[in-house]
Amino acid sequence: MKTMKIKIALFVLAALIFTSCKKKDDTDNTPVTGKIAISFEHFINDQPAVVNDYSYTNAAGNVYSFFLVRYFISDVELYKSDGTTLKIDDWTDHFYVDTDIPHTLLWNVYDEISSGYFDSLSFRFGFSDAKNQSFMFVNQPESNMVWPEELGGGYHYLQLEGKWIDPNGIKIGYAFHLGRGQHYDGSGNPIPPFIDNSFRVSLPNSAFSVKAGETTNIVLRMNIENWFEEPHIYDHNQWGGDIMQQQPAMLLAKENGWNVFSFHLNNN
C-alpha cells in the first residue's frame, strides 16, 4: 500500500512537470506579432518614372524630365479595425528615401506589429516642426538634406529634381524642394516664426493584414505628376528653378501632396 502511494505521488508529480513544460512551450512558440516591410516606388502617369526622359507633360503643359527624388517620411501610424493605433517608433520613427540609393527603397520596419486587420495607414511627409531639429543627422546621405538655418533649419522634406523645357525651348533645371517656409519683410529679411510645411498623408484605401510570424509587404508609390496638378496647377515657368525661398510655391507643393502617394500590396 505504501509502495502504491509512492507510485501515485510520483505519477502525479511527473504529470505536473510534463503539463507545465508543455504549457510553457506552447506560449513561447506561438507568435502573436508579424512584421511589415515598406517598398517605395516612383511613378509618372502610372508607369515607373524613367530618368532623363522628356516625354512627360504636367497639368500646366510643361514638358519635363525626372532625375531624382529624395525625401523623408515620419510618424507612420497603422489603424487597426478594433480602433487601436500603432505607431512605428521602436527603432526609428522616420525613413529616408533616395532614388539614387537602392537600399533606401525598402524599409524593413523593426517594430513587431500585432497580428490582425488594419483599415489604413498614414504618415507625415517630412518632419513635424517638433522633430525637425537641426544637426540631428550627422551622416550622409541624410545630412546632405540639411535645410539652412537662415531659412528655418532642420532638413529638406523633399528634393524632387529634373528639368523642364521653357517657352524658348531651353532645358532648365528645377529643384522642387520642400521644407520650412518663411515670409519676408519689405527688405527681404525673414519674418519669424517659420512655417511648418510638412503634412500628413492619409491613405484611406490602404487596408492590409498582418499575420503572426509573417511579413506583410506594403508598397508606397509616389505618383510624381500629382505634385503639379491637384488642387493647384503648378507651372515651372511661373515659379522657376528654385522654390526654397518662395513660400507661395512651397504651399502649393504642400497642398498638392495630399494625393501624391498611393498604397499597394506586394504579393511577391
Binding site: F135, Q140, N144, V146, E150, A175, D242, M244
Partner: peptide, 23 residues
C-alpha cells in the same frame, strides 16, 4: 546657404554638413 544668394550649400555642405561636400 540660400538659393536666392549664391546657393553653394546644395553641393558643398553647410554647418549641418560640415564636411563641406556631399561627395
Amino acid at each position: 546657404t540660400t538659393e536666392e544668394g549664391a546657393d553653394c550649400f546644395h553641393c558643398h555642405g553647410a554647418p549641418g554638413n560640415p564636411l563641406m561636400t556631399t561627395h
